[in-house]
């Protein structure tokens, strides 16, 4: 399992978690599975801990600083913006940096996925995923929620070989820019290894758009269950979504309660 695409914060959080699991007596393989890291990474983290204690476990940010990479030209940006408001043809639930890079190359704007990643970050389009695994150990009500409502479902879904996703809907870039310039509503997902998939909309997503999204996620692994931990939407108010969920019992939608999320609808 490659952890190259994880942000330093998430990576480090998982490394710390791995050390805790190893301290609890889990094997490297078990730890790797639970923490979402590769076995070598688990061993490396464990070694660092044995040699230098907790402070030695996190890794320093790697690579160039944000914004130092080559910036995209105006034409490329226009294409990016246009694509972001559409759903990808590929069947992916939404746009990953990789997907966007491919799309750009197809129309003659070769750009690296990393560059796109930086661009997204600069425009406040790269929200952090909810740090779920950390919640497992917390004594707070968020921790309790995770352990009681979320963890059992996710474990069951993983065990059955299904897909586990996190995501949410939020409003981006606010006071500095007038609303009409941006499609300010962002649907985002974090999948395996925390890879970001996203789409931007001009209005808050309607039930149809959510259901299409759920369907896409579901169709990635049609015979297996899918779990989605989602924040920022009030699905209770939508009878259409309720009906869809009833019709798809192998799709588990877990709402993040208010106050337990990243709270960054800004």
């Amino acid at each position: 399992m490659s952890t190259k695409h994880l942000s330093p914060e998430v990576l480090n959080e998982r490394r710390l978690e791995a050390v805790r699991l190893r301290l609890d007596g889990h094997t490297v393989a078990q730890t790797a599975a639970r923490a979402g890291l590769s076995a070598p990474t688990v061993s490396a983290a464990w070694k660092a801990f044995r040699e230098g204690g907790w402070t030695a476990v996190p890794v320093r940010p790697r690579g160039r600083k944000t914004g130092q990479g080559g910036t995209l030209d105006v034409a490329a940006q226009q294409v990016l913006c246009a694509r972001l408001t559409m759903t990808p043809d590929s069947g992916e639930p939404a746009w990953s940096s990789r997907g966007l890079a491919d799309a750009l190359s197809e129309v003659g704007h070769p750009v690296s996925a990393r560059a796109i990643d930086h661009w997204l970050e600069a425009r406040d389009l790269k929200p952090e995923p909810l740090a779920l695994t950390a919640l497992a150990r917390q004594r707070s009500s968020a921790g309790r929620w995770y352990r009681q409502q979320v963890q059992p479902v996710l474990e069951a879904v993983r065990k059955a070989g299904g897909g586990v996703w996190q995501g949410g809907v939020r409003v981006t870039g606010t006071r500095s820019e007038p609303a009409s310039v941006w499609p300010r509503y962002q649907l985002y997902l974090h999948g395996k290894r925390g890879v970001l998939h996203t789409r931007c909309l001009w209005a808050p997503p309607a039930a149809g758009e959510y259901m299409a999204l759920f369907q896409r996620l579901h169709d990635l692994l049609p015979d297996r269950p899918t779990a989605l931990v989602f924040q920022g939407a009030y699905f209770q108010a939508s009878p259409e979504i309720r009906r869809w969920l009833e019709a798809h019992p192998d799709f588990y939608l877990i709402n993040v309660p208010p106050g337990h999320g990243t709270g960054s609808t800004f």
């Binding site: 409003v171 997503p205 039930a207 939407a233 939508s238 259409e240």
Partner: peptide
Amino acid sequence: PLKPGEVPMMRK
């Protein structure tokens, strides 16, 4: 009253 298909957003 919500518009057809409207899903409210949770915002702070």
